[in-house]
Amino acid sequence: MAEVTQLIHEYLRHDKKFPHVLCPGCGHGILLGSLIRSVHALGIPKDDVALVAGIGCSGRVAVYVDFNTVHAVHGRALTVATGIKMAKPDMHVIVVQGDGDALSIGGNHFIHAARRNIGLTVLVLNNFIYGMTGGQCSSATPLGCWSTTTPYGQMEKSFDFVEMTRAAGANFVSRGTVFHVKTLDKLVRQALVHPGFSLVEVLTPCHTQFGRKNKFKSPVDMYQWLKKAAMPLEAYEKLDPDKRAGRIPIGVFVDNHEPALETRYAAMRAKLAKG
């Protein structure tokens, strides 16, 4: 196993201060590891990767890894990534966003990037909360959960990232967790090579801001919950609907192969060039 960490260290920016800024037990680091392993396994050169992040804890991930990294403004990572991808279609443009970044402030961009089916790999780190700003509820905070801005419980329903992205028309839609790392690696690898808009919703615990207020005693408790709650999509579908409550399906939900926006654009240009 030694190669795993050794490999990751080859991709980290060691002139950046480590350990990283994230809290003990935060799953964001696990996703970063997964991303590095996936890029390496696919043999993608560092130069060909543009990693665009939004604002929040997820936004801090980008600075630690030796790709072309962009830390954008809150909610707008997808717009910057769209510009990069259209200007350099051969680059692998990866977007790391949090739940608040992607579907609260950045919801409009998210829907439209999925609709356009532009060739971005989008990793949404869903921790159900605004972590960096101090634990306020987000559009992913489940009904009834507590946060600093829902001190009497969340009254609003949360977004289902998978269904939202499917409805918007993305090519590849999947969900994984940072506990099920080998599945996650597989999903990230698939998303990286899949043409068009590819989403991996990554469930990641935030004990500091979400867990503490929602009856999780430790970060480990949250991972125990992920371990129990998550199950493969295929098994989930066979489950009696009455028994689905509290279970989270993981796996690939949408696997289409429609041409990506940049492919359609290139085809239009070729047609125009012919006259």
Binding site: A2, I8, I30
Partner: peptide, 30 residues
């Protein structure tokens, strides 16, 4: 090793030596 969020743990087969210390590779202490 796969789950450490801080890349702080390495499992090496015995007999193979790594950089031996308790420091991650390439760190220049910056």
């Amino acid at each position: 090793e796969l789950h450490c969020p801080d890349f702080a743990i390495v499992v090496t087969p015995r007999g193979k030596t790594r950089n031996g210390g308790t420091q991650p590779p390439q760190e220049n202490g910056n």
